[in-house]
Structures are given as C-alpha cells and as structure tokens.
Design a protein around this nucleic acid. Structure first.
Lengths: 238, 238
DNA sequence: CGTCCCGTTGACGGCGCTCAAAACAGGTGG
DNA sequence: CCACCTGTTTTGAGCGCCGTCAACGGGACG
C-alpha cells in the first residue's frame, strides 16, 4: 500500500482501497474528514444481524467472517473478508443482513452511507473501483452457491483447502489455516464432525498434512480432482 | 418504463435500466450508438460457461436462468434474472463464469465492456445505479447461500414457493410457476424427485394447490413457518 | 491438577439421492 | 378421433452419505 497523494496514510480510500494512484489529489482528500477509524480484537463481534446500519466499513487489516443464523442453533458463514474489502454497503433497508465477527485483530475505517453516496457521485473513478469490488464479491458468492448446491463433503473440503493456497505460492509449501473445524463446517455447510472426518481421511490417504494451524498439500493433483474440476476455485474472499 | 429524455425508447440505459429520470439528457444519449439489440427464443442458450466474454447485457424483457456445471451431469442454477438486470459484467477474466439460458422469449441490449467502462467513468449517476444493481444481486446470492447451506428440503421448497408470490399481491391468489420440477431442483440444490415429493406432501397436507403451471397458497402461515423464519425470503432474482 | 475448548473417532438413524417404473400431458401423424 | 411417441411428473424401494449424539484425548490456562 503506497501513500496516497494527499500524504496521509490514514486515508483508506486512496491508501488501502484505491491504491493504484490514478485518483486525483482533490477527490481523495475530500474523503478524509468523513472517515472514522475503529479497531476490533480477535473474536469480537463487529455488528450483529438485524442491527440498524448506517455506515459502511473498509477493512484495512485483519480478517472478518460474515455469518447468518437462518435456523435456530446453526450458523452459516456467508463469506470471509480480507483487507481492502467493503462491509455493510449491500443493504438497502436499514439493517445488517448478517453478523460480522473479527477472526483476527481488525482495523477498519467507517463512512456513513450518505457521505459515501456523495463521494461516489462526485468521483467516478471511486465508483468504478466499488463496482469492481462488488463484482468480485458476487463471483465469490456464486462459487459458494455452486459448491453448496451440488458438491459432496469431500469435494467441498478439497475446494476449501485449495482456496487457501496463496496465489503464486509453491503448492507443496505449507500454508496457514486460521479457521477452526467448526468455522470450516459453517463455511461449507457441513457439520464439525464431518469436516474432521474428511481431514482425517485426506491425511490417511496421503493427500495432505495438517499439523495444528497449517495445511500442506502432498498430492495437489488428487486434491484438485476431488474438488470436482481441474481448477481450484475459491470458497470465499480468501 | 417511461420514455427517456432523449426521446428514443430504444435507449436501454434510460428506458429500462435507469428509468428514474434524474439522468441528464447528454449522458443518456451518449450511450445510444453503443448499443446492439438482441432477441432469444425460450429455451435458447444465450451464452455458455467458459465462452469468451467482452459484452455485458441489460435484460429488457423475459427471464434468464444462470447455470453452472461443477460436476459432470448435474447443473446448479446460480440465479434467475428479470427485466432490468445486468448479465455478464461480473467477470474480470475474459470468459463467462456461467451459462445463460432464456426461460421465456428474451430481449436484451448489449454493450461492450470497454464502452461501458467509459460511460461509467463519465456518468456518476449511471455508476450509482450499477452499484445498486450489484448490491441487490449480492444480497440475493447471500440468501441462496443461507438456504443451500443449512435448510432441509421442506424449508427450501417452502422458501422457494414464498419467493414466487408477487409483492403486494393477495397471498391466497394463485400465481404462475414457470420453472419445471427439474429446474426448481437445480435452483434448490435438490433432486427432481425430492422436489416432486415435497410438493406432493404439501398438497396432501393442505398447504398448497399446484395445478399445472400455477401454485396457490392455502395456508401461508404454515408455509412461512416451514420456510424457517417468519419472513419469506427470496430464493433468487424473482 | 482440574477445567475448558478443540479435535477426533465411533455408533446409529434419517434425509435425500439413485434407480426404476408407472401415470400423465402434449404433440404428431394416421 | 384415436394410436403413438416423447417428455414431464409422480410414486415406490433401497441404500449411502452425512448429521446427531456421545465418549475420549490432548493442549492451553488458571
């Protein structure tokens, strides 16, 4: 993240979200006064489903999970968000359609919807980037629909694991796994035990190693085949 | 749909998509030359998953279904689109991420991505409306994720039926059902037979009537309760 | 050392998928 | 009008996947 032209690295809308630098000096700085900065600890609830919602947030650092509880007792994760993404802007009525929880320590900047609308009206290039963000999130959501709709447990877990490997990274290198079994289950629409069983089976068959908080692909080819298609599709915002 | 200020009802971007009328004369007319009009018969494939994609379409009339085939042999419907919605703009690589098929005779207008980007840059209010469209679609997608992730077959079918009743309509009036059992199954992530069985069960229990291409709610309260929550959530773009 | 939380493993039952066939509707040609 | 064919819907029988319930092990922490 480069400093933006207004020389203020507090300015999310140029520093974090719109870092490409083709944004003019004036529009970027218009926003500065409208922002408020917030921090949340890991595990903290940022906002709750059904709560009134007037602000949108831009994630600066950390990871958020968005969850919902359509049936009493069981949660479903709608998606995971990483730095740079928008939260709380997709609601047209006045309440959040999901609960947001910090997975890691989180830093975010908040703007009211009203101010944001004004900024969007006056800054087409900002609007373009917001559109891009929504496109990306919609594609992620559609991938989740794809997977939840058809794939059996093995394939879901395989897809999920593949979605974790950092782009451009060596596929045989171990990579971190921040989610608990329960959270993976909520993301994949499975039960905690089923996720655990599938992980165990993958380990038994020499597909992966999974020591405490990490995963490592031993046979990427077979995992990919299990996932349903050659290409590893992402499960979420990761 | 009112005529737009440029007096040309061929102009989708003011006539169909941006009909609120607060769009200036000039920006609306900028677009006219960039549009091409297309028609598709019911059942016709508009474009196929994986095909190169350089245009975006605005639905003027009819209904589209978006499908994908993550596993050989089984399709999953990602969503249904009605007049006014955008198709083919959410891909950032050069291929369609899903197949689009006309459910009814369809009329659409096409613009190339390149032209559309230029229009968006120059017309903030157009960009705002596009953002609104994406927000809506994202919310729809999240509702589908919710339902696919957790709800059992009864609840999915109940939610689906509720999503069909036109807003503001008398809940006891019959309403049309254009989708086949198979298509409903693909939308709900179920098998054709299961959908048929649930419909039969609902009929036996006096919840609905379902004569050929129609549905009628006999006990809306119980259907709503079955759907999982008091409020009937939409399953798709309907 | 006790407690709590997370992950793992086993047993069991049920929901929903698969396979198969029959009932039904619609269209076409005789 | 009827026989025929095709595609859709319905219904049945069987079973496999996965969710539920329960018990156990291990690491973190007070």
């Amino acid at each position: 993240m480069l400093n933006c032209q207004c020389q203020n690295d507090d300015c999310v809308l140029c520093g974090a979200m719109f870092s490409s630098g083709d944004l003019g000096r004036a529009p970027a700085c218009d926003i500065r006064g409208l922002l408020s900065r917030r921090r949340y600890a890991a595990g903290e609830t940022v906002f709750r489903e059904g709560t009134p919602c007037t602000q949108l947030m831009v994630l600066r650092a950390g990871q958020l999970k968005l969850t919902t509880m359509p049936l009493a007792g069981r949660e479903q994760i709608l998606g995971l968000l990483v730095a740079g993404q928008l939260v709380g802007f997709e609601t047209s009525d006045a309440t959040y359609p999901y609960t947001a929880t910090a997975l890691t320590p989180v830093e975010a900047c908040c703007v009211t919807h009203k101010d944001m609308l004004r900024v969007l009206e006056e800054n087409p290039s900002v609007a373009l980037r917001v559109i891009q963000r929504f496109r990306d999130e919609l594609v992620q959501a559609q991938i989740m629909i794809r997977n939840l709709g058809i794939k059996p447990a093995h394939a879901r877990v395989a897809s999920f694991i593949l979605s974790l490997v950092p782009i451009g990274a060596d596929a045989s290198e171990p990579f971190p796994l921040v989610l608990s079994r329960l959270e993976i289950a909520e993301l994949l629409g499975l039960s905690e035990e089923t996720v655990s069983r599938v992980f165990a089976e993958f380990r038994r068959n020499g597909l992966i190693e999974a020591p405490h908080g990490e995963v490592r692909l031993l046979d990427a080819g077979r995992v990919r085949r299990l996932a349903g298609m050659g290409t590893g599709e992402a499960w979420s915002g990761f």
